[in-house]
Design a protein around this nucleic acid. Structure first.
Lengths: 335, 335
DNA sequence: AGACGAACTGAAACCGTTCCCAAATACCCC
DNA sequence: GGGGTATTTGGGAACGGTTTCAGTTCGTCT
């Protein structure tokens, strides 16, 4: 662990070449004759050389650092993406810097500035609220990839799933199980994912010829609290329902508890579908059927795309990602 | 967002002084006459000057960056600490870099090297396995704070709770509710927290004159899987028990599900206590009584201590932190 | 043998700051 | 006015790399 940090000059001396040559083998920026190259490599190994990132950045521009803008660390889905990104960056020598936008436009713009000041080579935005135009500007001057958000014209620099499809599939699954009074607990009003999923819900109902009943739609957010309140309100109003699509697993947990409190059995009396497939979903009592979002994969794909961009290559077409139904035990046939 | 980055030289020119002077007002490293100082300040504001972190670090040493070594991002307790640390660092101009040790000694040592290469001004280790001697070395050459791990002689640079006390309090609570056949599902064998909590469990039993029954002790880890397996094994062996202390909330979730599968009611037939008080604990059915660990507070305190150390001051005595019982609905009186 | 381009190599400038050192200026007291 | 001590200043050498530019050295072709 103790390295008084040898410099490029030490290497050069030991290998009997000039700094320039060492730099060249370090970056493979030009051909170096076999023997010298080997001498340098040997010296680097012997001295446990580690290039000084700061000198490097100052001189060359590249900082070997990417900025990752998260939104409220602690939400399972976004955490998953971040984790995937870390993984995808692993072993590439590129270090991520995390900053948190907290789903506040102002904060987010500020942290992006910070990142710019830190001379990051690229940026990965996970979710977020910054207006598209600003992002377009950003994209022009820095390799940028966004995950979990759809941006028109970003194509391969945009890793996300089709949330209306996801919402559709969840609702459709319930319909195919005979449910017709399906409650939808929506996520935050201005959250695009939430809006899209709701559209999927509507689409599924319409397709099945079931009119959308406003009484069954609850405007909430992504927390357990919302799930609990939704069910309480439904019960208080004496509304009839046999199934619930929740905006997230957390919402489903809250709903499940409220259901329990009111004496409804899951899935015998009411069926329940969550969103995310976070760890705890499998341990709910009973285990929660949910739409699994491939968070890790998304993060990893985003990291790969970013790396390509930084290397000056075009990012590959991202693998088509979509939410998949994870069938467990909270949905039963109805009627 | 668009700043063509002015340099210290631009400022100097505009203010009619030398680089040195600008640097001085920038760092308040020496007194500068009133008029010049104001001129410089004015110039900085006018040009939207932002010092180049890299040049600064290269020249001076300080990188305004601290390294945070996490262990397997995604575990609620450690995440909480990380989040607290971010908060504690907020607004100080110090940016955290995260790296993950994944609870593997080799990986951890490697990431610490990386951090060293990045010239971090300080390091915050959250948990981890690196041998004490190495950490002692590290401590000598760099401001270092560790959270969620007790290290002899580290005093104020060590933020953690007393886990034997925590284990004791959990078990004791059960005993005071009349339980005598108390199952203990232990965390990873070589994890100090797990060992300590078990010692607390033993202490509580002994104090109450209850012999420790090996059949009631299950060696597991911190996952839901472990909780489920423990209960399955207990039931399969026909062991009698009326309460369970789980190594973590995740373990408790697993145990709760298994209990349900075997037809035991919680808390009527068996009581259950978890550890961590992660978000989902409140939404378990029924809500889980658990030992809350002040993760965020710990992270924030660690960040503060680190900042002090970096500033060359002695860190303040960290506030005494301990796990607190969060009473909910999974423990009932027995016998 | 001489010419010529390709493959290598080293010298030196530069990236934006910090910080040491010496020069300049100010202040004070006799 | 002179001498001495503080207080401010500017100059310039690092810091550890990258990169441009101008050679050298070869191999090849007439």
């Amino acid at each position: 662990m103790n390295t008084p940090q040898s410099t490029i000059e030490d290497i050069a001396a030991r290998a009997g070449v000039s700094k320039s040559t060492v730099s060249r083998v370090l970056n493979e920026s030009a051909t170096v004759s076999r023997p010298k190259k080997e001498a340098v490599l040997e010296a680097m190994k012997a001295l446990g050389y580690q290039p000084n990132v700061f000198a490097r950045t100052l001189a060359g521009g590249r900082s070997m650092t990417v900025g990752i803008v998260t939104q409220y660390i602690g939400s399972p889905f976004y955490d998953g993406i971040a984790q995937g990104a870390i993984e995808g960056l692993g072993g590439t020598g590129v270090t991520p810097i995390f900053v948190d936008g907290r789903w506040e436009q102002g904060t987010e713009q500020e942290v992006i500035r910070t990142l710019l000041g830190r001379k990051v080579d690229g940026m990965l935005l996970i979710g977020g609220d910054v207006p598209v135009e600003e992002l377009n500007d950003l994209k022009e001057r820095l390799p940028t990839v966004v995950a979990a958000r759809r941006l028109p014209g970003w194509d391969h620099q945009c890793i996300s799933i089709d949330n209306v499809d996801a919402g559709y599939r969840a609702s459709n699954y319930l319909i195919r199980h005979g449910h017709r009074q399906i409650v939808c607990i929506r996520g935050n009003k201005d959250h695009q994912d939430a809006i899209d999923r709701y559209r999927g819900y509507v689409k599924a109902l319409e397709e099945a010829g079931i009119p959308v009943n406003r009484k069954l739609v609850f405007q909430g957010d992504f927390t357990g609290q919302a799930g609990m309140m939704a069910v309480n309100s439904l019960v208080a109003r004496g509304v009839h329902f046999s199934a619930i699509v929740a905006a997230s697993d957390a919402v489903a947990f809250g709903a499940r508890l409220a259901l329990h409190r009111h004496g409804y059995r899951v899935p015998d009396d009411v069926s329940l579908i969550g969103f995310d497939d976070q760890e705890e979903a499998a341990w709910m009592t009973p285990p929660l059927t949910t739409m699994r979002q491939p968070a890790q994969e998304m993060g990893a794909a985003a990291a790969r795309a970013l790396l390509c961009l930084i290397a000056g290559k075009d990012p590959p077409e991202p693998p088509q990602m979509s939410a998949e139904l994870q069938v467990r035990e909270t949905v039963s046939r109805h009627g």
